[in-house]
């Protein structure tokens, strides 16, 4: 099969995909001049060094003893030899590390999948379906993001109490099941990436509304959805305030950030252990990045055509 023309891609897969395809074709035609030169890589290397340095700083402190930390405000760039010892002390301390890890995985996975599903559903509806009140409702969704989160602690706690969820994981999951950001994000994406022709074709074939969504919209949404899922996963992985409020700092029943904060529950600060905790908490996310990185980030460009 020969490569489809750009306009026909636009017809079937939306403008984003068409642009991407145009870019690809450009590269094919005049790739040599488009390959960025050393300056670009230099800039990126500097950016990357800045991005990674604080994490490396945590790593340096996590791998030395706390006496070293007190002595040298600027840690030497060579890591010490106590990393595993400090990481083990985090894992074996009384904070309930493993159950906190499992709880965090549950909370982040459920919320990420749910955010993606509900946001795509709502985004599809806002972008592609016709119904009364569509415009005002979408503006309303955006306006809800302006509500300060600190504002809701007492009333939200009352809600969770009514639902008998205090101290339980669903109390952390429930408020995060779908976000205004997600709805808006998917609306904007599907608006451009999902051609009406595909929807119409499915409808003419006799597919129900939901079936149309499931087999047409959802696959088309995948590139933006993976990224949204990643953001939601990380946001919930790092959330500290609300889990602390509803779950409490109970070893075995809380999430990872709250558990790690318990490492500071001493009169004195053991920075090397605390930083080892930081490092341990970031490690699973870094592994996820490495394993799923390509899927997650390059999806935006490639996915739309497949849909």
């Amino acid at each position: 099969m020969s490569a489809p023309s750009i306009p026909s891609i636009e017809q079937f897969a939306g403008r984003g995909a068409a642009r991407a395809a145009a870019r690809r074709q450009n590269h094919r035609g005049s790739g040599a001049e488009r390959r960025p030169r050393w300056l670009t890589y230099t800039i990126l290397t500097i950016v990357l060094l800045i991005a990674i340095y604080p994490l490396y700083y945590a790593f340096l402190i996590a791998s030395s003893t706390k006496e070293d930390v007190a002595r040298h405000p600027i840690p030497s760039l060579v890591p010490g030899s106590h990393l595993f010892e400090n990481m083990l002390s985090v894992i074996n301390s009384d904070i309930g590390f493993w159950s906190a890890l499992v709880n965090s995985i549950i909370v982040s996975t459920v919320t990420a999948v749910s955010v993606v599903l509900f946001s795509t559903l709502a985004g599809y509806s806002f972008a592609k379906l016709r119904f009364r009140g569509r415009g005002p409702l979408l503006v309303f969704v955006i306006a809800t993001t302006a509500i300060p989160t600190q504002l809701g602690v007492v009333p939200l706690f009352l809600v969770m109490k009514q639902l008998h969820l205090i101290g339980k994981l669903p109390a952390v999951i429930l408020p995060a099941l779908v976000t205004a950001f997600g709805v808006f994000w998917m609306t904007q994406y599907l608006e451009g990436a999902l051609p009406y022709e595909l929807i119409e074709a499915a409808r003419v074939d006799g597919a129900s509304m939901f079936r149309t969504f499931w087999s047409i919209a959802l696959p088309a949404a995948r590139p933006a959805a993976t990224m949204l899922g990643l953001f939601a996963f990380v946001a919930n992985w790092t959330n500290y305030f609300w889990p602390l409020v509803v779950l409490g700092a109970v070893p075995g029943r809380t999430t990872l950030p709250v558990a790690l904060k318990m490492l500071q529950a001493h009169y004195y600060a053991d920075y090397s252990q605390v930083m080892a905790g930081v490092f341990v908490s970031v490690l699973p996310l870094l592994v996820m990045f490495i394993l799923a990185g390509r899927q997650l980030v390059s999806g935006i460009m490639q996915g739309a055509v497949k849909g």
Partner: peptide
């Protein structure tokens, strides 16, 4: 731009986002 090792650069940029605020504050 049409980079080599595109995924690597993009993921690298996102690293600070995964570090919890508590950790960022400590650092």
């Amino acid at each position: 731009a049409n980079l080599r090792a595109r995924t690597f650069w993009r993921m690298g940029v996102l690293v600070p986002y995964v570090v919890a605020p508590v950790a960022v504050a400590m650092i």
